[in-house]
């Protein structure tokens, strides 16, 4: 287990460094721009509140990105050790777990609390949002587990097509949740295009972070682990 944890932390640190760099070079400037637009556009934003200073905020946020990668990587390593026997596929196991992690930690909370641009203000206080957010991560874990287990069980007995169909059912239920969930944000109506672009940026950067963790973990784990199988399929896969 220690080996898997070590691989996970190393993969997370690697992915976190890339993500932190991305935070520094892309996301922070984009958020700065969006704040600028928000304040000088419709006067809705919260640009004024920067007691830590712009540079400090960018540095700490980049560091936060690195630590975020380390945190997710450590969780990934432990989860991989514990649940590896239940994951379908051979070479694709880390990628299945990476997708499950992305679903649980990011996508499930986003169904109720979509990523907010600086122009938007939350409708509810953090004492309401934090418990729901944690609960949604739990929901995401259940959905991911149901999807993976459903696929593993039915594809073994009824074939792959049925397995995929069963795996999609929990995901569809989660998608339905995003449709029925009440709105949790106000503001930012004036720039639907900017908001959509920002959400795609956020979604892809998180997916990329998980993909990077899975790829790095796959390589590290194979080097550390006792079994060495062919490395073609992993090398053929890109990151993001």
């Amino acid at each position: 287990m220690i080996e898997r944890l070590r691989s996970g932390v190393a993969a997370g640190a690697l992915a976190g460094l890339v993500y932190g760099l991305f935070m520094w070079l892309v996301i922070s400037p984009v958020i700065g721009y969006l704040e600028h637009v928000a304040v000088h556009g419709d006067g809705h934003g919260h640009e004024a509140a920067h007691p830590a200073g712009e540079t400090m905020t960018a540095v700490v946020s980049a560091g936060g990105g690195v630590l975020w990668g380390v945190l997710l990587g450590a969780a990934f390593g432990v989860a991989y050790y514990l649940f590896e026997p239940a994951l379908p596929g051979e070479e694709s196991k880390p990628y299945v777990l990476g997708a499950a992690g992305f679903l649980a930690v990011s996508v499930a909370p986003w169904t109720v609390f979509p990523p907010a641009t600086p122009a938007m203000a939350p409708l509810y206080g953090s004492s309401v949002r934090v418990p729901i957010y944690i609960g949604l991560i739990g929901v995401g874990i259940i959905v991911a587990a149901a999807s993976v287990l459903g696929y593993a069980c039915t594809s073994r007995t009824r074939g792959r097509g049925v397995g995929v169909f069963v795996a999609v059912l929990p995901l569809a239920a989660l998608a339905l949740l995003s449709v029925v969930a009440p709105p949790t944000l106000t503001g930012g109506e004036g720039s639907a295009g900017l908001t959509a672009a920002f959400r795609w940026l956020v979604g892809f950067s998180q997916a990329g972070l998980w993909a990077l963790i899975a790829v790095a973990f796959h390589h590290l784990d194979r080097r550390v682990g006792p079994q060495t199988t062919d490395s073609l399929s992993a090398a053929a896969r890109g990151t993001d």
């Binding site: 935070m23 958020i31 920067h50 700490v60």
Partner: peptide, 11 residues
């Protein structure tokens, strides 16, 4: 506030 960009960026 220091983690502001990170929290926005990570959704």
């Amino acid at each position: 506030e220091a983690l502001h960009d990170f929290r926005h960026g990570a959704g």
